[in-house]
Computed example of a mutant assay.
Amino acid sequence: MKPRMLLKCITPAVVAISLASAHAAQAAPLNETGLTQASPEDAGVDSRELVRLSQWIREQKLEVYSLLVVKDGKLIFERYGAGVSRDSNFELYSVTKSVTSMVAGILIGQGKIGLDDSVATKLAAWRPDLRADFADKRKVELKHVLSMSSGLHYDFKPKDDPIYYAAPDRLKLAAETNPKAAPGSEFEYTDINPILAAAMLSAAAHEPVEQYAQANLFAPLGMKHAMWTRADRSGLVSAGWGLRLRAVDMAKIGMLVLDHGRWQGRQIVPEPWIAQMTSPGVAPYFGYYWWINNVVQNEPEFDAMGFKGQFITVLPERNTVIVMTSVMSVDGGLRDAKNLQIFRQMVNNYVIPALDNADHARPSKERSAALRRELDISARTRGIPGTQVDPADRPRL
C-alpha cells in the first residue's frame, strides 16, 4: 500500500555557559547537545547588543529562565537565570502544540493518517464507548483540529477548568462538545483541539503519542530530559501542554524548521509538511499549530508560543532561531499578552540589531570578557515572576 500524500496539492545550577570562551575561529561541536558552539562575533553578530539585552532583562527584573540564539546552525548566545542550567527542562505550555504538528507531519508522511481524516471515524474506532458523542463531528477533520478551526464549543471555566486539572478523561469532555460553526470556517484558539489531536495521533501511531514522538522526533534529535507530562487518568496526554524540553532542544525544533525538516543531513520531518504547517490557513497569522509573523512583522517569521512566555522564533532570512523560557505576565490576551510584548521588544530592539550589525562584529578580548561577565552575572540573578508560579513552572533536571 503506498503512503498517503501529505495533501493533494502542496502549497544550584551550573553557571551559564560562557560563549565568549568559544572565541576561537573554529567552532567546537557540543557532544552533549549535538549543536555547535561559537562566539557571536564568529557568526557575524554583535555581542554588545546581546550583552545589553541581558542587562536590560536584569534591570527589568524579568523572570527569564533561558534565552538562546542560534545563527547559521551555531549556538552563539546561551543565557540562564539563577538556579537554571543547560540540563534544566521547562513546561512549554502551548509550544507543545507546535512540536505536535511536527509529529503529525511525520505520521502523515508515513501514510498512517491524513489531514482529511475524520475525527469521528478515527476516534469512534479508537474509543467505541464515545461513538455516540462523536456522531455530530463527522465533518471535523484533522486539518481543522490542527488549524484551530474545528468549530467546536467548550464552556471553559474561569479558573481551574477540569480540562487542565481534574478531568479523569479529557477525551470524553472533548467528545461531548457541540459544533457551533462549520469546520474550517472560523479560527478559534481552543484547547479542545489539541486533546482531539493527541487522541487522533495516538490512534494513528498505535501507541501513545508521547512514545511515538520520543522514537521518531526526540531521539533522532539527541534530546535529553524530554518529558510529556500531565496525562489524565486514562493515560492520554494533551497535544496542547505538558511537554517539557531543555532550551537547547527547543532550539533544535526551530532548526528543523530552518532546514526544511532535516537534522544533520537526515530528513526527520517531511519537507512539504514544514512548508504547510508554517503557511497561513483559516487565519492569516496561523498555520498548523505554528504562528506566523507574530513577533517580527516585516520579514518571514514563524513562532511557537506558550503561556507565561515560552517561545521558539524562527527567522528564515537570517538563518536564526531564538528561544526563551520564562514566567511573565499573561495579561493582554492571546496575541498581545504582556509576555509577548516583552519578547517582541527583546527580538526587535536587541537581537535583530545584533544580527544586522555584522560590519561591527569584530572579535576582541574585551568583547569576549564583557559577554562572559554578563552571562556569569545572569546565572546568579533571579527575576520577579510576572504571574503566579505553579509547580509545573519550575525548571527541572
Rank of each mutant, 00 (worst) to 15 (best):
P3D: 04
L35V: 10
A38E: 00
V51Q: 02
Q55Y: 07
Q55R: 15
E59A: 13
K61T: 08
L62S: 09
S66A: 12
V69E: 04
V70A: 04
I76E: 08
E78A: 03
Y80D: 03
A82D: 14
V95W: 10
V99H: 03
I113R: 04
D116R: 08
A120I: 01
W126L: 07
P128I: 06
A132F: 09
L142R: 01
L142N: 02
F156M: 14
P158E: 09
K159P: 05
D169T: 02
L171H: 02
A174N: 05
N178K: 12
N178H: 14
P179M: 00
A182R: 10
S185D: 10
E188S: 14
Y189F: 11
Y189W: 09
D191Q: 12
A197H: 04
A198S: 11
A199V: 02
A203G: 07
E210I: 02
A213I: 08
A215S: 15
L217S: 06
A219D: 15
P220E: 03
H225P: 01
H225S: 14
A226F: 11
A226R: 06
M227E: 12
T229L: 12
R233C: 04
A239P: 00
L243N: 01
L243Y: 06
R244H: 14
R244Q: 12
V248Q: 07
D249W: 08
G254N: 06
V257T: 08
R262V: 03
T278D: 09
F286E: 02
G287D: 07
W291D: 04
N294Q: 13
E301R: 03
G306V: 07
G309R: 02
F311S: 01
F311Y: 15
I312M: 09
P316G: 04
T320Q: 08
I322L: 02
V330C: 11
V347F: 04
N349I: 03
V351D: 10
V351R: 13
I352F: 07
R362I: 11
R372I: 07
S378L: 14
G383P: 01
P385G: 06
P391L: 02
A392F: 13
D393A: 01
R396T: 14
